[in-house]
């Protein structure tokens, strides 16, 4: 087996706002951008690291999702209990400053957690929790 973790998906509710956050605030490059309106699939990832990507996708696009399920998903996204991802960096403090300066919603300033990780956290425009941890 030769598997890599290639692409993880996060939902958006405003494709342009999410694109701006990942490109301008996190500094990711845009690798593809297909669809239109709210039905946009945007692939972004860190410059110089083409092996891993995040796909920003419309939530509940599967036609088998019921109207009730779709409402629950959009409410959980708004509430901030739906999507989340863990990123990592060697310089947490500089990263935190840059992301904060980009006007992102701060959830947690750099903090050493009881389980040993030092991390901070933000919300992306769709309410996904973006946790960034420090690499030693």
């Amino acid at each position: 087996m030769d598997l890599t973790i290639h692409t993880s998906a996060l939902p958006h509710d405003d494709p342009d706002a999410s694109l701006a956050f990942y490109r301008d605030t996190l500094g990711f490059e845009v690798r593809s951008d297909v669809g239109q309106g709210r039905m946009r699939w945007i692939t972004v990832g860190p410059v110089g690291r083409p092996d891993t990507s995040i796909l920003l996708a419309p939530p509940a696009a599967d036609p088998n999702i019921t109207e009730d399920e779709r409402r629950t998903i959009t409410e959980m996204m708004a509430k901030g209990t739906y999507g989340w991802i863990l990123l990592a960096t060697h310089d947490l403090d500089a990263t935190f400053e840059k992301v904060q300066a980009g006007d992102a919603e701060v959830v947690q300033e750099p903090t050493v957690q009881p389980y040993g990780v030092r991390d901070c956290a933000f919300r992306d425009p769709a309410g996904n929790l973006i946790r960034i941890q420090e690499l030693s």
Partner: peptide, 21 residues
């Protein structure tokens, strides 16, 4: 949805601890 997003921000600011592992 707007109300939920607003309360999310308020909750994050006062109690970010429960969003951790």
């Amino acid at each position: 949805l707007e109300d939920l997003a607003r309360s999310r921000g308020a909750h994050d600011r006062t109690d970010p601890g429960d969003t951790g592992p």
